[in-house]
Amino acid sequence: MAEKILQGENKVKRHGFSVLFVHWTVAISTFLLILSGFGQMPMYKRYHIADLPGMSWSADYSVTIVIHYIAAVALIFAVAYHIVYHVLRKEYDALPRKGDLKASYQIIKAMITKGQEPPSDKYLAEQRLAYAFIGVNLLLIIITGIIKVLKNLPTVDYSPTFLVWVNNLHTLASMLLVFGIVGHLAAFLFKENRALLPGMFTGKIDLEYVKHRHSLWYSKLAKQESSKGSRSNLTSGHACPENCHAGGRNQ
């Protein structure tokens, strides 16, 4: 399992390579998709973005469409990887739970008033909501985007009505995604959230921060550590009984 307490370092391993890979592939490809997507709307020429130094390419639809396609390949790859990886491992910590809306309000209120916030699991309640919001929009964008790609093929024709829906849903979901990303980044305006930042670069975050803010998660990690410890004691002293490898998450 990727996540564990690293006592020696005084840190907690929060994310493995898969999560970092997916996060940054999605982030970079989405940035390129937004940039080139706006380029596919007739905007950069009119509003003189293309006149800025080094930006003349941005008004060329034939350049921005290729960037859009390449970035879409990377995004779809990462999203497919993400879904399959976590479903296989039955890791659903980032999905919203009942009461997240209320808990998010309490956490944000506590950050502003410097009050007491409810204990959190691996993810904060508002992180789970943000994940769902961004995820749903990304899925909408991908599905409508694939339809848009197919309709560009010489052999594919869809009805005009259908295309109006697909095109405008793609644009609407993209605007909502931009809103979601702004919200995601704005979270780091709060000092309290900044301890999570190293997690997305090194995979590790401060142990004391986890104990203090993600106490629910910490107890799970601690429990896992102790059970691991006792299991390793067991296996080092005795031969592994039949089927002992088949237990756990894989069931």
Partner: peptide
């Protein structure tokens, strides 16, 4: 040019899923 890239777009989810399956396993 864009239509020439469609195959890679259709392969992307399959490749992503396959790699995820392999890594998770």
């Amino acid at each position: 040019t864009a239509n020439g890239m469609v195959l890679s777009m259709l392969v992307a989810p399959v490749a992503g899923a396959a790699l995820a399956g392999f890594t998770a396993y």
